[in-house]
Structure formats: structure tokens, C-alpha cells
Design a protein around this nucleic acid. Structure first.
Lengths: 195, 195, 195, 195
DNA sequence: AATGAATGAGCCTTCATTCAT
DNA sequence: TATGAATGAAGGCTCATTCAT
């Protein structure tokens, strides 16, 4: 699940259009790296320094902080969203697809430290990100969940929104606490959800 | 699980001793309220304002921020810790005891919004609180967990520490999101843990 | 040169009059000790704590900070002032008397760390102290200086005021710098003054 | 001994480079003025106000307070250090060179009031400055002192470090006290040192 | 008279954001 | 378009000083 190169891959002409794009991409890469290291609340200066640009350049490309945060993770969210249907096709069983997808999601959240935090959606910054995550991933999760529960009569104990947020929450702080097994807890939660 | 009245209950004479105690309590109440509203990282000034005192008063009573944070939640943590053994005695089954205890814990965390956040323990401030929570509650949780799993041959999938932190994480943000069912998710997680 | 007991020695009746005096004395002792340790700018709280009284008590006895500072050192200044004429009588030569007196003064300043600083007289606090020092000691110094220079025709290169302040300045920081030889420098200055 | 123009003299083009330099210099000038007025411990805000800039600007240029303090006096210290060898060449006698150098040093300290204070080196801030002064000027003073004492058999009564600090101390407060003759006292001290 | 809790001004420092170049 | 200097609002913490008890 590569985060940042899909745009540049599509940029065939390296001229006037290419350069802005590329520098925007450099910003996103830098921001991703800094977010991973220092959390989503990292000083703008730190991001600018990492990207080798002035702070003004950040503000030129992303008028507000949330815009930047969303932009940073858009690629990953897209990749995750697109993986859902594919896994449903490729996997042996729907449950396996769901579990694979969740595993992918968890890895994504845990790897990009601070992302799970951002997902929470209480900080002013993260609301936009939260909305984006939910809007894009809940339907995917829902589809996988429904497939995994096909043939079950009982009402599902929670909806996809709750599963997604629960999984997200379980990933908080995982990168900083070696004793904490986010992945195991998440799979146990899924087991609970599927009965 | 009331947080703040045990002290005042003991203050029969309102004289020299009464006033300091009462104001310390007022500080804790104010801090709890502010923590619930603005998170554990709320400005000291905001707490002081809420309590109607100067910032100096806060620092007089709680030399460091972590001290204040721990003090705010000490009553609740104690109540929770003490409830564990009692529930084991009173409940029909050990699993019921565990589930009741967890329910109590969740209610505690969700009600005092911001507490679950504090529990995360990544901010420098909350480390002390985190340590206190873990030190006090993990043993209790462990006992309940062991009782609930008595007779099971298989290895437990996760230890009490992970259960506690997982539950804590699942409670994050619950108070602010009506769609989010922390309690349900927690019970599903427990189901997963107990198989 | 004991600093603080001359008052109490004169207090024959330990009754209503004695107790206030004694507690005032305890304050002075505590302040002297704290000034010596932490400088004349030491927090009032520290002094109160050392004296085992509340801060209010300090303010009751010494309405302003300078008052306290002056009071603390009054005994020593008096002792020093009174030693001048005596040394002139006891010493073999007037120069010996001057050098002995200066030595005593230096020891006094260096021992009571922060005193030399206070003597400088630029801080708002120390102005009163400065005035007191100068008013009380310059005449004494002048007498010793004149005696030491008796028989010399030339004009004195500096007056007693300058000698006193110069000596005071040379003592600044002496207690904190083992490499710094205030006493030696002072004697060299005196040599220069006497030719 | 001008303190601040050597840099600007090199700035021929007033463009991109000019502005930053000029404002850094403005900061140093403002700081020097404030240090002279209110001592080296003056609030950063006061310096910022004097310079007509925000506090952030100060911190941008000088990450720590000691850095600022050292920067303020660096030019002067350098000028003084470089004058030593030159005076030794130009002066009629080594003693004259020493006395000229000391005079220059005194003038420097007295003019920039607050500098002698800073030299004391007890405040955490001024330690860096103290170290810088001592490291840069003691060797120079030592050379002049040795030259002035060439041919003398006796041990020197004090080393260059003590001479420098003694002279520095004698300059404390000089600018504020018209009666106080720092220069005279200093020359008398030198006389004492040279016998 | 003594106490010490409370106050709040004031300091340092950090950082998001603006804007002249 | 890019830059990064400058800004100034916060926030944490420390004390001198007041005042109710």
C-alpha cells in the first residue's frame, strides 16, 4: 500500500504542470514522514523543514491544516477502499476477506503513527479527515461485513461504522507500547462481532 | 461511583480544617469538569477560572500537572478497583462478574469524558495517570479474567493489560459521538477474549 | 563577629516584650541564613519556612523587603563599625589597623554571601542597605585611612567612600568562585591606595 | 571601540541579505540598551519592545537567552582581545601597555553598563558570557601582565584571571554612581599587583 | 498576633499564521 | 510562486503580597 506516488505516476508531462505536482507531492511525503514521527500535531515548521521548503509554501498548497492532513492520507484511504472488493473476490471466504481487509487497515493505522489519533475526529483538524475516512471506508467495511455475515439470521450487533471506529480506536497508541497488541485485540473484536 | 464526596463527608467541623479541604475539592471538581470538556491537556488557567481561583492556587495544591490529573481520578480508580473482588463474590458467574466490572469501568470512562484519553498515556502529563491506572486496575482485571476463564484449557489470547487498554481505547470519544456504541463494542471484545 | 544575638542578650525579661523580640530575632537569623545561601533575592517563602513562621509574619515585622535586609545586617555593620576605633588602639601601626579592619570587613562580606551584592545598591531593595552601610562605615574607614596616611604629604588618590565600595565590589561572587581571591585583591588595592 | 557596525559595513547590497542582518543588529542594539538600563536579566519582552519587534523575533535569532547575551557583547570582547597585542607593540613600556589595555577594558565595562554585572557569571544566563569573557580575555591579560612583570623575580601575587575579575568587579555600578571612581580604583589595584 | 491560602501579575518559551520581498 | 522573517496569542510556572480566619 504505497502512499504517495500514484499522482506522480500519472504525470506524463514534466513541464509546467509536472513541477507543481511534484513539489506538492514532496510536501505530502514530508508531511507523512513527520506525522508518522511526531504525530499529526507536528509543528508546521517541522514539515516545511523536512520538505526543504518554506512554511509559506505549505500554506500556499494547503490553506488549512485539515486539508493537508486529508491530502496526506488520501492515497492510503483510497488504496484501502479499493482493496475491499478485490479481497472479497480473491479470498477463500468472506470472513477471510473481512479479516484480511481489517488487517490491512490496522497495519495502515499502526504504521502511520498518529493516524489513529487523527481518525478520532475530535480535534478541529481531524474532523475533515474523520469525515473522509468514514465516508469512504464505512461502505466498504459494510459490504465485507454483510458478506461475512451472509446466512446469519440474527441482527448484526453493531454496524460497519462502529466496527470501523472501534478498530481505529483499538489502534491508538499501538506504535508506542510494545506490550499492547492492537492486531490481536482487533481480531478478537471481529470474532465478537461475527459471533 | 461518586467521585468527590467521600472527603467532605468526613469533614464534620467547618472550621480551620474545613476550608482548605473544601477548596481542594472544589479544585478537583473544576478540574474534572474541565478535563471532561477540553481534555486532560486543558490549560491550567482554564481550570483555575472554572474553579474561580487563581492559577497559583492550583499550583499550591498540586505542584505538578500530573499530580492534579492523578488526584482528579483517584477516587474513581479506587472505587473501580474495590468493586472487582466484590463483584466476584456477588455475581452469579465469574463471567458475569467480569462483564459487570467492565461495564462499570466503561461507564466510568465514558461518563468522565477525557478520562479515556488521559488513560492513553502518551502525553507527558498523563503518563503518571496511566501508570496509576495500570498499576491499580490491571491486577483486578487479571483476577476477574482468570476467574472467568477457569476451566478453560487454552491459553488466554491476551493478558489483562491488553484487555484493560483495549477497553480504554474503545471508550475514546464515546461521549461525543451518539452513533458510537462503546459499551457494545467492549462487550463484543470481551466475548472475543473469552471465546 | 556574631550577627544576631546582641539584642536577645539585652532582653532580660522574657515576658510580653521578650517573646516578640525573640521571634523577630528568629526571623533575622533565618533571613541571614537564607541570604547567605540563596542571595538577598531569596523568596520570602524560603525565609518564612526557615524561620518556621508564616509569610504573613515576615510582613508584619518588616513591611518592606529593604527593611528586612537592613535589619538582617545591622548587627554586623555595627560590630564592624565599632571594631574600627578599637583596632586603631590595639594595632601596632595604623596601617596594620586599617588592614585588619579591611580583612574583617572582607570576611564579613564574603561569608555572608549576597551581602556584597546587596551593598552595590542598585536594586531597589538594596538602596536602603547601601545608604546604611555607607553612612555607618565610611566615617570609620575614613578615620583608619587618615591614620594610615598620617605623615604623607600627597593627596589621597581616593576617598574612604571609594575604598569601601571598591572593597565591597571586589568581594562580589567570591564565595562562589574558588579561583577568585577576593582577600588578596583587596590587600593589593589597599597597597595601591597607600602607595 | 564601536560595537555594532562591523557587520553592516560589509553589507553593501541592501537586498535579501540586508534586511535580516539589519534587524539582527537592531536586536543586538536594543538588547545592549536594555541590558544597560535594566541589567542582563531584563525581560525578553522589554528587549523586544525596545527593538520594536515581537518576542518571537528575538527567539528566532537567538534560541537561548545566553546566546543573546553573548552575541550582544561579542564585538566588544573581540575588539578588546585584539587590542592587547597591538598595545604591547605600540606602547612605550609593557606596563604602559597593560595600563592602557586595562583602561580600555574599564571604559568598555563602564560604558556598557550592565556588562560588568553580566561578567559576574552567577546567573545561569551569564555563565556563558562569563566563560566567553574569561576564555577570550584572560590569555590577553596574562600576556600583558607577564610583559609588565618581566624582570621581576618575585612570584606574581595574583594571576590574570583574578586581575580580570577584580577589574570587572571594580567596575560594577560605576555608571550609576558619580562619586565612584572605578578607573582610579582599578589603576590602584594594578599598582598593587605590579608592586 | 500569627497564619498560610489565595491571588494574579509577570516571565519564558513555542508555534500557527501572515506578508513583504 | 516561493520564501522565511516577523508576529503575537497562548500556555506553564513562580513569587511577592494581601487578607480572612
Amino acid at each position: 500500500m504505497d502512499d504517495t506516488d500514484s499522482d506522480t505516476a500519472q504525470t506524463s508531462r514534466p513541464s509546467q504542470v509536472g513541477r507543481p505536482r511534484r513539489s506538492q507531492q514532496a510536501l505530502l511525503d514530508a508531511a507523512a514522514a513527520v506525522f508518522a514521527t511526531s504525530g499529526v500535531d507536528a509543528p508546521v515548521r517541522e514539515i516545511a523543514a523536512k520538505a526543504g521548503v518554506g512554511v509559506g509554501t505549505i500554506y500556499r498548497h494547503f490553506a488549512t491544516r485539515p486539508e493537508l492532513v486529508v491530502a496526506v492520507y488520501r492515497h492510503q484511504v483510497e488504496a484501502c477502499a479499493e482493496a475491499g472488493p478485490r479481497l472479497l473476490t480473491e479470498s477463500a471466504t468472506p470472513e477471510a476477506a473481512l479479516r484480511s481487509w481489517i488487517t490491512m487497515f490496522v497495519e495502515f493505522l499502526v504504521t502511520k503513527h498518529g493516524l489513529a489519533d487523527a481518525l478520532r475526529g475530535d480535534g478541529a483538524d481531524s474532523d475533515a479527515l474523520h469525515a473522509y475516512f468514514v465516508g469512504r471506508l464505512v461502505p466498504v467495511c459494510d459490504e465485507l461485513l454483510a458478506a461475512a455475515r451472509a446466512g446469519t439470521d440474527a441482527q448484526p450487533p453493531v454496524d460497519a461504522y462502529n466496527v470501523l471506529k472501534g478498530v481505529g480506536n483499538l489502534c491508538i497508541g499501538a506504535a508506542h507500547d510494545p506490550r499492547y497488541r492492537a492486531d490481536t485485540l482487533v481480531q478478537l473484536l471481529i470474532s465478537g462481532v461475527l459471533n
